[in-house]
Design a protein around this nucleic acid. Structure first.
Lengths: 152, 152
DNA sequence: TACTCCTGATAGTCAGGGAAAGTCAAAGTC
DNA sequence: GACTTTGACTTTCCCTGACTATCAGGAGTA
């Protein structure tokens, strides 16, 4: 029995309990409860609760800090967005990004304004400071993150 | 339970009450009411009610002293969001980004969906691969880029 | 009246300590 | 080889208290 599985199960269970698809926890507390080091929690979150898997994670450090995990609710006519998110690999070139966005807009899965905003965040314009060989990876991560947030 | 949150909530509540987006208070009095030291009020003001987050704070010492917090009214001229874009510096920390978005939404200058999407692109979650010391710069660049794209 | 000085009533500053979560690389497991 | 686990170190945020700066008004003086 892996600790990671226990952590995952616990988080999912908590989500069920709250009823709104949200789980809020404190890293140190949970680590203590489950008998692992705190960074193990972080590991599980980054490997199993990613946007591509339909989750949004937000957190806060310092006194009274917390971690909140939220499961994305998919509207009946929106699963295609999920497919898109899953179909994006580790890297994404600008042209492909634009194509995906245009496609989504023409299918009425994305408002034009939303597409514009997403597109703006995916142009190399914004990545001046990022080494060229890392931009496509960043682009892919951002695209997934943003598409996932469209229908929280 | 964070005292900072209570102070923040109190100030926002006061702003609602007055109706003109202004709250006036006395530091010692509020500190007494909420059971904290006066400098805690100052801390909250400097960390959560900054100009970058859309607030102006003015104060006066001595007898009859006071602190007035005012929510910035963005001019309804064109282009609406440029004020915000211009007020963002070279770097942007996550908390400030979030605060700006909330402010814009509450002033109806941004659709909640759009704010969510932008917010998603500004969390550290999306920047795992980026060196920590470059994230705030990237965040600032992305924020400007996206806000500019809202009303093309 | 006019001026200075004192005093009490404010708010501001800053350094330090504590409480969280994040990072990363090395070691372990299957 | 990919995934897991660990722990030392870092960063962020919160809270406090001692000390400082500023203001208004009154007392004293001429």
């Amino acid at each position: 029995m892996r600790i990671s599985d226990a952590i995952t199960a616990y988080i999912l269970h908590r989500m069920e309990e709250t009823g709104d698809g949200t789980a809020e926890l404190q890293r140190n507390v949970l680590a203590e409860q489950l008998g692992c080091v705190p960074s193990q929690i972080t590991y599980v979150l980054t490997s199993r609760f990613t946007p591509a898997q339909g989750y949004i994670v937000e957190s806060r450090r310092g006194g009274g800090g917390y971690i909140r995990i939220q499961r994305v609710k998919w509207e009946p006519d929106l699963p295609p967005l999920m497919h898109v998110v899953n179909s994006i690999g580790e890297e994404l070139v600008p042209a492909a990004a634009q194509a995906i966005l245009e496609n989504l807009v023409s299918q009425k899965l994305l408002r034009p304004e939303t597409a514009r905003v997403i597109g703006a965040a995916l142009t190399d314009q914004a990545y001046r400071q990022i080494p060229a060989d890392q931009r496509d990876k960043l682009r892919a991560a951002l695209m997934k993150q943003m598409l996932t947030a469209v229908n929280v």
